[in-house]
Simulated assay, not measured.
Amino acid sequence: MALPIHLAGTHWETLHPPLLEAGCYAVDPEPYGPPWRQPDEVGAREAAKRGRFAPFGALSDGPSGTVLLAPGDMRGTGLIMERTGGYCMGIDGRDGPNLACLSCDLPVGTRMDDCGCWQVVRLVPQAVVRLPAPPERPVMEWAELLATGALRHRLSDYGDIPAGAALAQVVVAAGGAPVEAAPGPVAELLGRALGSLLPAGEAALRLDLAGPGFGEPAADLALVPVHPQTGDLWQPRTGTVPGPVLVPMDAALWADLAFPPHRTRLPMVGGLPAGVERDDPLPPHPQYPVQPSMEAFRYTLARMPAVAEPWLRTIYDRGC
């Protein structure tokens, strides 16, 4: 499956669920693991070669292409007890590979499950050997993803992370111009943040949703879903030329905006007859409005070459 956007951030001192569903794997192209180096040690040119265009935490000199799995999918490994350091609730991987093969005792990967960490195992790419196996899960078409509910990834309390990543994509796509979010879920999620990051003006670019089962409203910028299996951006079948600029968004968050459960499951007209009491749960309503994660916003911007532009670097350096 595509690398989950949730890697863009975490919630501090909170136990997180597994990053990936059981039976899935993803590959992280970025280096990961110790030794870690500070940006001033590496230099801007070397950092850019690694895909980091603005300082954001330490840079890893670990291996690239680690294979990510859910911890429960691991077999035939055991913990290296001398490498199980963490903050307070588990292991955070600070000591490097902490899983060893039970057959040869060689380190093969790193398990992380501490607070503020997505629960995941990162396998060292050199330790992974691809063997014959049953066919991989077929790639689902967009219509099938919608019909089966596969776009809903149970974001729960972590919707602010993909929202922050989407906010960064919108700001870059706008090129410094003012943006007006379409009324409704888009404005509720991103409108306030966009108003604080970008200038106001009459010639604002309109931001709206577009995608499978939703249509293609008239807009300058269109938030469209990223396929959860392939990482491909949804593409409109037809449209005017040049058409809106397509802005990638996590598919689960996109589905929650395009087809919000607490809005689409209510009856369109009327209500219960007098004297009849409801005996099923009410549709789920968010406890509080989701605000984009600024950590995920900066994480995403730091990995985009556009952040080197002066106007955008100013926004980035403010810390927002």
Results as ranks from 00 to 15, higher is better:
Glu277Arg: 13
Gly195Cys: 05
Thr14His: 09
Thr264Trp: 07
Glu180Val: 09
Val245Arg: 15
Ile315Lys: 02
Val172Glu: 00
Glu30Lys: 09
Gly86Ile: 05
Gly90Met: 02
Pro39Phe: 02
Pro17Met: 04
Arg298Gln: 11
Pro97Thr: 03
Ile91Gln: 01
Asp40Tyr: 10
Ala163Lys: 04
Ala44Gly: 11
Arg237Asp: 08
Ala182Ser: 15
Met294Leu: 13
Phe214Asn: 05
Ala127Lys: 12
Thr314Asp: 11
Asp61Arg: 14
Asp92Tyr: 04
Pro289Cys: 10
Leu301Pro: 01
Gly231Cys: 07
Met268Ser: 11
Pro273Thr: 07
Trp118Cys: 00
Glu82Asp: 08
Gly96Arg: 12
Gly57Asp: 11
Trp311Phe: 08
Gln229Glu: 14
Pro138Glu: 04
Thr10Glu: 07
Gly211Ser: 07
Gly62Asp: 11
Gly33Ala: 04
Trp36Tyr: 15
Pro125Lys: 01
Pro310Asn: 05
His285Ser: 14
Pro4Lys: 05
Ala54Asp: 01
Ala210Asp: 02
Ala163Gln: 03
Ser103Leu: 11
Gly319Asp: 08
Pro228Gly: 01
Pro183Val: 08
Leu131Met: 10
Ala47Glu: 10
Val129Glu: 14
Leu131Thr: 12
Leu198Phe: 00
Gln235Phe: 04
Thr77Val: 15
Ala204Leu: 06
Gln38Leu: 14
Glu144Met: 12
Leu59Arg: 08
Gly85Ala: 12
Gly43Trp: 12
Gly76Pro: 05
Leu221Asn: 01
Phe297Asn: 03
His227Asn: 10
Met1Pro: 10
Trp234Ser: 07
Gly86Met: 03
Gly51Asp: 05
Pro261Glu: 08
Ile80Tyr: 09
Gly109Leu: 04
Val124Gly: 05
His285Gln: 14
Ala274Arg: 13
Gln126Tyr: 07
Pro4Met: 04
Pro4Val: 00
Leu272Thr: 09
Val276Leu: 15
Glu13Arg: 13
Arg154Gly: 15
Leu131Trp: 06
Val307Gln: 08
Asp317Asn: 05
Leu131Ala: 12
His262Trp: 09
Leu205Asn: 08
Leu151Gly: 02
Arg192Leu: 13
Pro283Met: 07
Cys104Gln: 09
Ala258His: 00
Ala44Trp: 10
Asp28Met: 15
Ala47Gln: 12
Thr300His: 04
Arg265Val: 01
Ala147Met: 11
Pro225Asp: 07
Leu146Trp: 08
Gly239Leu: 02
His11Ala: 14
Val172Gln: 01
Met268Phe: 09
Lys49Leu: 13
Gly116Cys: 11
His6Trp: 13
Pro248Gly: 04
Met249Arg: 07
Tyr288Leu: 13
Ser196Gln: 15
Val121Lys: 06
Pro248Phe: 01
Arg37Ser: 15
Met268Val: 14
Pro284His: 10
Ala58Pro: 12
Ala143Tyr: 01
Ala2Cys: 07
Arg83Phe: 08
Cys24Thr: 14
Gly201Ser: 11
Met74His: 03
Gly213Ala: 05
Glu202Ser: 14
Val245Met: 11
Cys115Ile: 03
Gly184Phe: 05
Leu123Glu: 06
Glu30Trp: 09
Asp113Pro: 06
Asp160Ile: 00
Leu312Ala: 00
Leu197Asp: 04
Leu197Pro: 00
Leu123Phe: 11
Pro261Gly: 03
Thr230Asp: 13
